[in-house]
Amino acid sequence: MSKLDLNLLRVLQILLEELNVTLAAERMHLSQSAVSKHLARLRDMFNDQLFERTAQGLKATPRALELAPQLHLIIQQLEQLTRPTAFEPKKSKRQFTIHLLDTAYSLTFPFFMPELLNKAPNLRLKTKTWNPNSLDELLKCEIDIGIACREWDKRSPIHIDDIPSELNHVELIKEHSVCLVREHHPALKTKWDLKTFLHYRHIQVSFGGMEQWLLDDVLNLQQLTRDIAIDMPDFHSAMSLCEQSDLILCAPARYAEKLASSFKIRVLDIPVNIEPGAYVLLWNKHFEQDPGHQWLRELIINNVNEQSVLGI
């Protein structure tokens, strides 16, 4: 490790993220030849090829993949050492990475982004849809913030009390689910109860890495199941299908109510007793005293909580 050049670690990190010399060079404002020279030094430093060229770009070697999480943590710690003890939003060009559920975008970003853009015009947010790896990435400090769904119902496998101890969290928005049916759906002509609810086939939307809803967990405890006709990746497409068929769709209430006016659908209560859940802001305790991270967290929490209280 006597040959270790800390300045090259950032080059390796960006190459691992981009898997493309041209894109990495553009991102670092360097020439491709300069990046290639850095890569040659990195290969010598780690005694490994690190990347192989393919028709699709660069492919990381097993050694490079092994280095990736350690590299991220080392660079993060170095940035912590050189970061000012006070955060100045107006001057900051820092980038934060946020993973969040698709349904959380419209319930959060419109309420805190205007203030962020005004107070920190050069700050950058990189967002990605919450997925099965997001919690692990939070635990490894590979992302800054997560916005995910957690339940208060004790029957849920993702109960809010089961959030890993390495993470801190704040409840942003209370949430419950509703049932959507098309206008003139035959179910509207009968008594709306559990029997009617289960009589019709359903659209299932799998999001945030959840294969099954709390609703289904609760029904299973009663030896009951929904008849799922189709599993879809997003609610907008699911609502369009719901509008054109007798299929029933269950969706988070706040998100559904925002979209429902664009479709000819009716909103009904789900005839199953389930305690409301919540969208929660998650972050690793490693960032607890980080001034910039703290500023962003408080900005999101204050603005989103305010709109939640107002019922927007």
Rank of each mutant, 00 (worst) to 15 (best):
R182L: 07
L81Q: 14
S36F: 15
L42H: 04
M45E: 12
S206Q: 15
L116Q: 12
F235N: 04
A229N: 06
R124V: 15
V304K: 08
V309D: 02
Q13W: 07
A229P: 09
L71Q: 08
N122E: 15
K191P: 04
Q49C: 02
S177L: 09
V205F: 06
L247E: 15
N303W: 03
W295N: 07
R53K: 13
P271R: 05
N220H: 08
G277I: 00
E88S: 03
S165L: 11
P132D: 00
K37S: 07
L125T: 14
L138W: 03
C250I: 05
A24D: 00
E257V: 06
H293K: 12
Q13Y: 13
D153M: 12
A238L: 14
P89G: 01
N168I: 01
L65A: 01
Q294R: 11
S2I: 09
L259N: 00
I228Y: 04
L50R: 07
L180Y: 00
V309Y: 02
L198S: 14
C141S: 12
S36T: 12
H176R: 14
L296W: 01
K174I: 01
Y105M: 04
L138H: 00
L310S: 09
Q77E: 15
L282P: 15
K264R: 06
S308N: 10
A24F: 03
L101H: 06
D216Y: 02
L15I: 13
I173R: 08
P252K: 07
N302D: 14
T54D: 00
L116D: 13
L116S: 11
